[in-house]
């Protein structure tokens, strides 16, 4: 039984990491209705930039700040070159554009910083500690704390600052928000910047686990089922969805995997998400307005 719980717990922690990625999607989806496929590429770009700066001998804090600034610059460029010319187009076109964008960002990331696997050491030991009778990785605990801090910061920023309130106004009614003088391009730039910094944090956590390499950008494909289960427009939903996906995936791998010749983690989450779509199309916490036929 303790084996079951250990699997469950490690699955939940993996889920936290999924949520971390999914939050970046939710931010952009809320503000601009775009499913940003390039979030994965942004994650790769941020992590690669950070690791390159560290390898050049830059101290941790400075590298973090510089990378954040790079992500802000990228957000401004994206808004200017991609989003502005495509405003008022249907969500599908925007989705395709972010698909193209992900190719561009990935290409640049690897062209400028190479395709090698970079090891990233955040100084957090990945050792097992015993908590309440089961073994848990210390790294997982700290990663969850980082995620928690990030979510708390975002929640405060959204609910207490003027900027956050305008952002929520845009999310709830774009036209009304514009009519009271909220400038949409500014909001987009801010949201994409924040999503870029979230991508940086997620990239660091994932990167120190797997090494910073191309496959990081694929992590974000898992965000799609997480978002579907949690609801596209809800940060608590992203977390709940992430936990659910992480836990069920880990359990399915252990208990279903051996019955069908090996790991099922490549596809399990998607099938779970499809099941969810059929039963509860808006996700656990999403708006009811999701398109249903």
């Amino acid at each position: 039984m303790s084996y079951f719980f250990e699997t469950l717990v490690s699955g939940l922690f993996a889920g936290v990491m999924y949520s971390l990625v999914a939050i970046g999607f939710v931010l952009i989806y809320k503000a601009s209705g775009v499913f940003n496929f390039a979030q994965g590429a942004m994650l790769l770009f941020a992590a690669l930039t950070f690791v390159t700066l560290i390898e050049k001998g830059m101290p941790f804090a400075l590298a973090f700040i510089v990378t954040s600034l790079v992500m802000v610059a990228m957000a401004i460029l994206i808004e200017w070159l991609v989003l502005r010319p495509l405003r008022n187009r249907d969500p599908l076109t925007l989705f395709m554009a972010t698909l193209g964008l992900s190719y561009v960002i990935e290409g640049f990331a690897q062209l400028l910083m190479g395709m090698d696997v970079h090891m990233l050491d955040l100084g957090i030991p990945d050792v097992a500690v015993q908590v309440g009778g089961i073994y848990v990785s210390q790294f997982d605990i700290i990663a969850s704390l980082i995620a928690l801090t990030l979510v708390a910061t975002l929640a405060i920023a959204f609910n207490k600052t003027r900027m956050g309130i305008s952002l929520r106004a845009v999310a709830s009614d774009t036209l009304a928000a514009q009519s009271i003088g909220i400038r949409l391009p500014v909001i987009w730039r801010i949201v994409w910047s924040v999503a870029g910094i979230v991508a940086l944090v997620a990239g660091l956590v994932w990167g120190s686990r797997q090494g910073v390499q191309y496959s990081l950008s694929l992590v974000t494909l898992k965000a799609l089922p997480v978002l579907i289960i949690g609801g596209f427009s809800s940060i608590p939903g992203a977390i709940a969805g992430g936990l659910l996906v992480g836990a069920t995936e880990a359990l399915a791998d252990i208990y279903v995997g051996p019955l069908v010749n090996g790991s099922v983690s490549t596809w399990f989450a998607y099938i779970l998400a499809v099941g969810f779509l059929l039963v509860r199309p808006a996700g656990l916490f999403g708006d009811r307005e999701i398109e249903r036929v």
Binding site: F35, P91, L92, F95, L221, L224, P225, I228, T266, W267, Y270, I271, A273, V274, L277, L278, P281, I290, E291, R292, V293
Partner: peptide, 22 residues
């Protein structure tokens, strides 16, 4: 799933097919 959902939500189902068959 297309009978109940539209848009890129449908992506999840087809993406599932992609990974499942591979």
């Amino acid at each position: 799933p297309s009978l109940r959902i539209k848009g890129f939500y449908l992506g999840a189902s087809t993406l599932g097919a992609q990974f499942l068959f591979e």
